[in-house]
Write a protein that binds this DNA or RNA. Structure first.
Lengths: 344, 344
DNA sequence: TTGAAAGCGATACCAT
DNA sequence: ATGGTATCGCTTTCAA
């Protein structure tokens, strides 16, 4: 039996992608009819037999409409662009984004997370988003300038919403005031009699977005109280924490706000390993209220953050889209509460 | 002084979005010339003065090209669609995705994360992705069926790549064999003399993707050894862990594979609170090699996972795009190694 | 060196 | 109840 050499696996007849014209041809109707049937256009009555023929043809060809062509024709899309954040996404943020996408999906928007955020978004980034002609753009964190907002609006975006530490000219803003986090932590520590307060500043890139405002919040809370504030650079590794702990005696701090629970856990362990008693000698407060902080001994005091619900933000976006001319709404949305446990 | 009432903020002249025709008009040239200049088309020489005029006009109008129109005309795009995962994204996955996006970006692809994944992707989901006419689709986790792959290919996707526990007919696959994780943990425990082994099964939805294969891996490792395997449902809360710990005596386990480091930490704490000595009475092994596990006392033994580098996957995608007909490549990419510390 | 015009795929108006 | 056709914004041959 003769072996017929098969065509090489490479480049097998790359069948052209079926278009509505193909469907029309196969069903023996016009492209208009195909469109009517597939979009259930109510304004036009199509007989049942025709509908069936069209649907079968579409099915048979594996026809999928072409989003670009559709939105080109329509002059608009329901795409919401959300750039990837410039900061490393934590569990809180991930959950928030998930909720948000779900909520927007239910409002019939298509959410698209765009690109690998490297550094503060320049106007170039804004232009890249604008090319997609999104109906709305949601920008996490800082980095979008007024120029970027202008680019997006000129390109037809009906809503530009930032959610980050500060508002941007011309855009709606959900302001996440991280100063409040530091402020809450510092007040808590001060109220409990601590006067020499350290603030952990993560050395990992991208975190300044949060660490700087948090530091500022601490500073504000302590202003005029006579308490001291010491910045403590720390990177997320055991050695770094070890080095910091090694000079603890020199530092003479009676409290630390550790940026968040993870850094707090890292530092706590290093301190305990060197015999520093928590909270007797030094109080420790984290932030984010992670489950794992509760497991520490002593249980970690923390600042709990309340992000806005995804539904809430989705509603805001929807409102903004419906009334694109409305004055930019800016709302402070970061709820902050100190959870006092045993480490402070 | 008379207050002139301003126009209501709502609906201010919604200026039409500038098109290349507008730029052409303003620059006093044809649309073709605009296209040449803005795309730096080498095949055509345009005089410097004209170039300048065009660029200035574009700048002045805030012109941004229309991606949909462009790719419609071109017949293809460089968009890579990556659906949001069905499982909650952990830090490992986030880092992986970030790397991947960066690497693909450097290869001049535009990565777009699509939608709020709810449940296993049906063929409907595949159709939604196909509407974007992506040049490639990267699907995390399971849930994409052969039907979905077919839809995507018919719509012109030149590469469909899944990275999850198993391969899918017709698509390239980066197989992350989570059985190996459980297998590694169980072998480690068995080697160290443990014979009654518990396996934590998280009750949180979406995690079955990983927990089931990991369990299976444990089972396989233990088969024929006479060691016993006990499934331990656990949800990510202290009470749940407390309840589990309360019946520890009844269970008579001398080891636990705790699904991952977080569950391991949760359970360890609950056990220690009830006086169960680790590892003397019960050994504990996690997975993922989180920093925080190292901070536990005793330090947590763990299974470290080595995800493929983003660059590697990006290269695979690029190859697949260039040779769309090539036979589906399937490669096992999850590196697994046991990190023995003090908890086992 | 520049311009006119065709055409990508889908939709909606206007006829029939 | 259907079909013809102009149109969305852009790229690209072909002519001038």
């Amino acid at each position: 039996m003769v072996q017929i050499p098969e065509k090489p696996a490479s480049s097998p007849a790359p069948r052209p992608v079926p278009t509505s014209a193909d469907v029309a041809r196969l069903a023996g109707v016009s492209r208009a009819t195909v469109s009517y049937v597939l979009n259930n256009t109510r304004a036009v009555r199509i007989s049942e037999p025709t509908r069936v023929r069209v649907r079968q043809a579409a099915e048979q060809l594996g026809y999928v409409p072409h989003a670009a062509a559709r939105s080109l024709r329509a002059g608009h899309s329901r795409t919401v662009v959300m750039p990837a954040p410039v900061f490393p996404a934590g569990p809180l943020y991930s959950r928030f984004v998930g909720e948000l996408q779900g909520a927007l999906g239910r409002l019939d928007y298509t959410v698209v997370q765009y690109g690998g955020g490297a550094g503060p978004y320049g106007d170039a980034a804004a232009r890249a988003w604008a090319e997609l002609r999104p109906i709305a753009v949601l920008v996490p964190g800082p980095g979008l300038g007024p120029g970027g907002v202008e680019v997006l609006r000129r390109s037809g975006a009906r809503a530009v919403v930032t959610f980050g530490p500060e508002a941007v000219e011309g855009a709606h803003a959900l302001i996440m005031d991280h100063e409040a986090v530091g402020h809450g932590a510092a007040r808590h520590l001060h109220d409990r009699g601590r006067r020499r307060i350290g603030v952990v500043m993560p050395e990992e890139p991208g975190l300044e977005t949060f660490s700087l405002p948090r530091l500022e919040g601490v500073r504000r809370a302590l202003r005029g109280t006579g308490a001291t504030l010491t910045e403590l650079p720390l990177s997320y590794e055991e050695e770094s924490a070890g080095r910091l702990a090694a000079r603890w005696d020199t530092l003479r701090l009676d409290a630390v706000f550790a940026y968040n629970d993870e850094y707090a856990m890292l530092l706590s362990r290093a301190l305990q390993d060197r015999g520093v008693r928590i909270p007797a000698r030094t109080a420790v407060v984290g932030a984010d209220d992670l489950m794992l902080g509760r497991l520490l001994r002593p249980r970690l005091s923390t600042v709990r953050l309340e992000l806005p619900s995804g539904r809430e933000l989705a509603a805001l976006v929807d409102r903004a889209v419906r009334d694109p001319g409305a004055a930019p709404e800016r709302r402070v949305v970061l709820g902050v509460s100190v959870v006092h446990r045993d480490s402070s």
